[in-house]
Simulated scan of single mutants.
Amino acid sequence: MAARLGVVSVVQVVIRSLRARIFSGELAPGTPLAEVDVAAQYEVARPTAKAALENLVASGLLTRNAHQTARVTLLSARDALDIYRTRAIIEAEAVRLLAAQREVPSEAREANAEITELVGASPIDIIDPDIRFHAALVQALGSRRTSAFYAQLTDEIRLCMTHVQDATLLSTKDIAAEHARLLQLISEGEAAAAAKVLEEHLRTASNKLAEHLDSL
């Protein structure tokens, strides 16, 4: 059992490092990541490198066709629209249910307060609190299955947001203001209006990202 836990730990270390390098832009979209190269770079066994790469393929950060080297995912405009459309389906329903109970997640308030404090800072800095804000809306439902399903999208959401913020497609001030408006509507029990604000918030981001990706 101890040996098994050790292997899992090493795999997770490699996964975390590769994820960080992808999100920072060090590993640009389209960059190939061969098992043998990853194993050599991290000084781990090839099965460990393979397990790490398979995890990142499953999360959408890497793309690999049969018998080909994995590559950092290059999002298309269609990918971005699909990811945000899926988010909207889950998050809008979460917002409706929260508004019906007038339940405002404290984690969402805290995350948006952090975003507000970052107005004027690098747009990349708001990615973490922005993700926490939206995740808090879903997690507040208290549904293990819904949260688990949403969590499967997290890496692709972060990849999208990295593109959005790296290109400064959205204003931090506007994001914080829209979040604040959404939380206000939830607290007032305005379910339909809250869902509409959420959907428009995500639609604006997805459309700007799709336009940006099409221009590359």
Rank of each mutant, 00 (worst) to 15 (best):
A3Q: 05
A3R: 12
L5R: 15
S9H: 13
S9C: 08
I15H: 00
R16W: 05
S17W: 03
S17K: 09
L18P: 02
S24H: 07
P29C: 11
G30P: 10
V36D: 10
V38S: 00
Q41R: 11
A45T: 01
T48S: 04
T48N: 03
T48A: 05
A52K: 09
L53Q: 02
L53I: 08
L53M: 01
L53E: 01
N55V: 13
V57M: 06
G60W: 04
L61I: 09
N65E: 15
H67L: 14
A70C: 02
V72H: 05
T73G: 03
T73W: 00
A77C: 08
D79G: 01
A80S: 03
D82G: 05
D82R: 14
R85C: 11
A92L: 09
R96C: 06
L98M: 11
L98Q: 02
A100Q: 15
Q101D: 12
R102L: 01
E103Y: 14
P105I: 08
S106Q: 15
E107L: 09
N112I: 12
E114R: 15
E114A: 12
T116P: 02
E117Y: 07
L118C: 05
S122N: 14
S122G: 02
I124A: 08
I124L: 11
D125Q: 11
I127N: 01
D128S: 10
D130N: 15
F133N: 04
A135C: 09
L137M: 03
V138T: 04
V138K: 05
A140I: 07
G142A: 06
G142H: 10
G142F: 08
T146H: 03
Y150A: 06
L153A: 02
T154C: 08
C160F: 10
M161S: 07
T162L: 06
T162C: 08
H163M: 11
A167N: 07
T168G: 00
T168S: 10
L169M: 06
L170T: 01
S171Q: 13
S171V: 11
D174K: 13
H179L: 10
L183V: 04
Q184V: 10
G189V: 03
A191L: 04
A193N: 04
K196G: 02
L198K: 13
E199T: 14
E200N: 15
E200H: 15
R203Y: 10
T204Q: 09
A205W: 04
S206W: 00
S206H: 07
K208D: 03
A210R: 06
L213W: 04
S215Q: 12
L216W: 07
